[in-house]
């Protein structure tokens, strides 16, 4: 059993393709961990910071809010700009534009600016400076399922990976202080920067896939990523009955690569109904077909986590 003598285990839930059910399953796992016979002290992280949904299901009772200050963007002081064009020439992000008022000066589009500051260092009239941006908020929330660390990146901002790293660090410190034994990370879709941050330090990856051509394609990509980082991996198939041929392919693929499939969750309307209620499916509909399979998956996960 997971216990306090062992170091904290970190489980990351990923999928490659979006919308396969990561968050619904993460919420159910949070519920089951709390409800286990030997209650497991769990800290939860929503690492999908630009489409953060876990809190919609776990319904925090209270939250502490912290500001997230990300990178800086360049800003030109119009009165100092002599219109020499050098910043426009140097900028590789097409972020510098002339004012339309005929003033022979330039401005920077903050959305296009990458924050490299090449213009700042090259401006002969010292008209450009870097201005740090508040790029979002992060929260430490109390839920009945455990402490939840989540964030809202402001729409369109960069640095999602950095924000993920930040909340993971705070979550880990909290887990240490409160002698938690498990950290569950609800990961973002894709395989890029925030996914890499979500995976860092994970003891086990659970890939939630679906039996569709797109789901299988992206399963292979996320699997390669986890193997690259040498993170042990298990799979569960969600909406397992929508395309039997696809399910067979995943089974074949998993056996070729010696990856365990911990469960096959049928398409089940209860998952969406529970989401609408703002509750984990295992709590709202414990006898639903999906809840039963997720319970089995959880039991197997506990075994795997105590081994790894």
């Amino acid at each position: 059993m997971l216990n306090q003598a062992n170091p904290i285990k970190q489980l990351v839930i990923l999928s490659g393709k979006g919308g396969t059910g990561k968050t619904s399953i993460s919420a159910a796992i949070a519920d089951l961990a709390r409800d286990s016979k030997n209650k497991i002290n769990t800290v939860l992280i929503d690492a999908d910071v630009d489409a953060a949904n876990l809190s919609l299901v776990l319904q925090p009772q209270q939250s502490e809010t912290y500001e997230f200050w990300g990178g800086s963007v360049a800003e030109i002081e119009k009165s100092k700009c002599i219109g020499c064009d050098l910043c426009k020439l140097l900028c590789r992000y097409d972020a510098v534009f002339p004012y339309a008022d005929g003033s022979n000066s330039y401005f920077i589009d903050p959305i296009a600016c990458d924050g490299c500051a090449a213009c700042v260092y090259s401006c002969a009239s010292e008209a450009i400076r870097m201005v740090q941006q508040k790029e979002g908020n992060w929260f430490h929330s109390k839920t009945v399922y455990g402490d939840l660390f989540h964030a809202e990146l402001f729409p369109g901002k960069e640095n999602s990976g950095k924000l993920v790293t930040l909340i993971k660090q705070h979550a880990r410190l909290w887990a240490q202080d409160t002698q938690a034994s498990l950290i569950v990370v609800d990961g973002p879709p894709g395989i890029g920067c925030p996914v890499i941050s979500a995976c860092a330090g994970a003891d086990l990856g659970l890939i939630v896939t679906e039996p569709s051509v797109a789901g299988i394609h992206d399963l292979q990509r996320i699997l390669s990523l986890l193997q690259h980082f040498k993170i042990p991996v298990v799979v569960c198939i969600n909406k397992s009955d929508i395309y039997p041929k696809g399910k067979e392919k995943i089974r074949q693929f998993s056996s070729d690569y010696k990856i365990d499939i911990l469960g096959e969750i049928p398409y089940d309307k209860h998952i969406i109904q529970a989401m609408v209620q703002g509750r984990p499916v295992t709590r709202e509909y414990p006898n639903a077909p999906s809840s039963k399979v997720i319970q089995e998956i959880w039991n197997k996960l506990v075994c795997r986590l105590t081994k790894c």
């Binding site: 979006g18 910071v49 489409a51 973002p188 609408v276």
Partner: peptide, 28 residues
């Protein structure tokens, strides 16, 4: 476009004349 609402979505949208947003009727 990719999912989410971060810089890669902005990069896809930049210069577009119109954005077609596909949603599903759920809280998420």
């Amino acid at each position: 476009a990719p999912p989410g609402a971060s810089c890669s979505v902005v990069e896809t949208l930049r210069g577009a004349d119109f954005a077609l947003l596909v949603s599903e009727p759920t809280p998420f």
